[in-house]
Amino acid sequence: MPDSPAAEFDAYAGDYDAAINRGLKFTGETKEYFAETRMRWLKDRLGAQGAHPRTCLDFGCGTGTSASLLMEGLHLEQYIGFDPSSESVAEAIKDHPHGNYSFVHEADLLPRNHFDLAFCNGVFHHIPVAARAEAFQRVYASVKPGGWFAFWENNKWNPIVHLLMSRVPFDRDAIMLFPAEAAGQMKTAGFRIVLRDYLFVFPASLKALRPLEPTLCKLPLGGQYLVLARKD
């Protein structure tokens, strides 16, 4: 991932959560709701595949907001977060002084063929288009054979997503990936696509309808999508 996005996130490292919540205000939820729902959904999807990862790479971890959720939700033994923003990594280290957490901002320090799971949420729309293939290849190299890649992204088909992202300073100029585009690049990197789901259809004002979301997860309606892939 290039230096310019890293420099941008260096500037927002101390105010990242507040900026995200300003963008999400329209949904009636905070980032915690989305993070916890993503984790439950991913745990169920991995469990259905008989996958119980013990080591996890959080690719584009930012300030480490997913670290505890991944460690506790998936019962991990090791978590390593990578982000090219040194200021974001510094915040993550400060916020996670205990436990088997590691954070790095140099991609060359990531071990190869090591992780049971690579996790990525809302990162690739910040990576310049020309650099995305290399980023996917780096994730592929870090996952062990038989390991998994859980790729979460904002759904470019959803017009509300465009509105929400326009309210976040570091998301306004981001270039999102269509789901098929993301899956295609993952396949090119070497992954086998196992499933594609869409989540977050209903805002807080319609939360009574959220039990319907599992029945709608194959329709491109939700605010985010998951592409779950495997390195065979």
Rank of each mutant, 00 (worst) to 15 (best):
residue 161 V to H: 00
residue 105 H to K: 13
residue 97 P to M: 04
residue 147 G to F: 01
residue 173 D to S: 04
residue 168 V to I: 06
residue 153 E to D: 08
residue 124 F to G: 03
residue 121 N to F: 06
residue 153 E to R: 05
residue 90 A to E: 09
residue 139 V to A: 02
residue 124 F to N: 00
residue 162 H to T: 07
residue 161 V to N: 01
residue 146 G to E: 04
residue 143 V to Q: 07
residue 97 P to T: 05
residue 177 L to A: 11
residue 129 V to I: 07
residue 112 R to S: 12
residue 169 P to E: 10
residue 114 H to D: 09
residue 144 K to D: 12
residue 145 P to C: 10
residue 140 Y to N: 13
residue 86 S to D: 15
residue 85 S to W: 05
residue 142 S to T: 02
residue 149 F to C: 03
residue 125 H to L: 01
residue 178 F to E: 14
residue 152 W to M: 03
residue 83 D to A: 10
residue 89 V to G: 10
residue 123 V to A: 02
residue 89 V to H: 06
residue 130 A to C: 12
residue 178 F to W: 15
residue 119 F to Y: 02
residue 122 G to F: 01
residue 149 F to E: 00
residue 123 V to D: 05
residue 122 G to N: 05
residue 148 W to Q: 02
residue 133 A to H: 13
residue 175 I to Q: 12
residue 157 W to T: 06
residue 151 F to Y: 03
residue 101 Y to G: 07
residue 147 G to M: 05
residue 170 F to R: 02
residue 101 Y to H: 09
residue 165 M to I: 01
residue 86 S to K: 14
residue 109 L to G: 13
residue 107 A to R: 14
residue 175 I to L: 11
residue 99 G to S: 09
residue 114 H to V: 01
residue 118 A to K: 01
residue 138 R to E: 02
residue 127 I to F: 14
residue 94 K to C: 09
residue 113 N to C: 14
residue 167 R to N: 01
residue 106 E to G: 15
residue 149 F to V: 00
residue 163 L to C: 12
residue 153 E to I: 04
residue 136 F to L: 07
residue 127 I to S: 07
residue 84 P to M: 06
residue 171 D to I: 01
residue 116 D to M: 12
residue 175 I to T: 15
residue 117 L to K: 08
residue 99 G to N: 15
residue 113 N to E: 13
residue 96 H to N: 12
residue 111 P to R: 11
residue 177 L to N: 11
residue 101 Y to W: 07
residue 86 S to W: 02
residue 119 F to H: 00
residue 115 F to N: 02
residue 89 V to I: 11
residue 107 A to G: 13
residue 149 F to Y: 02
residue 146 G to V: 12
residue 88 S to A: 13
residue 165 M to W: 00
residue 153 E to M: 03
residue 104 V to K: 08
residue 180 A to W: 15
residue 114 H to N: 10
residue 83 D to R: 07
residue 126 H to T: 06
residue 167 R to Q: 08
residue 86 S to A: 15
residue 98 H to E: 15
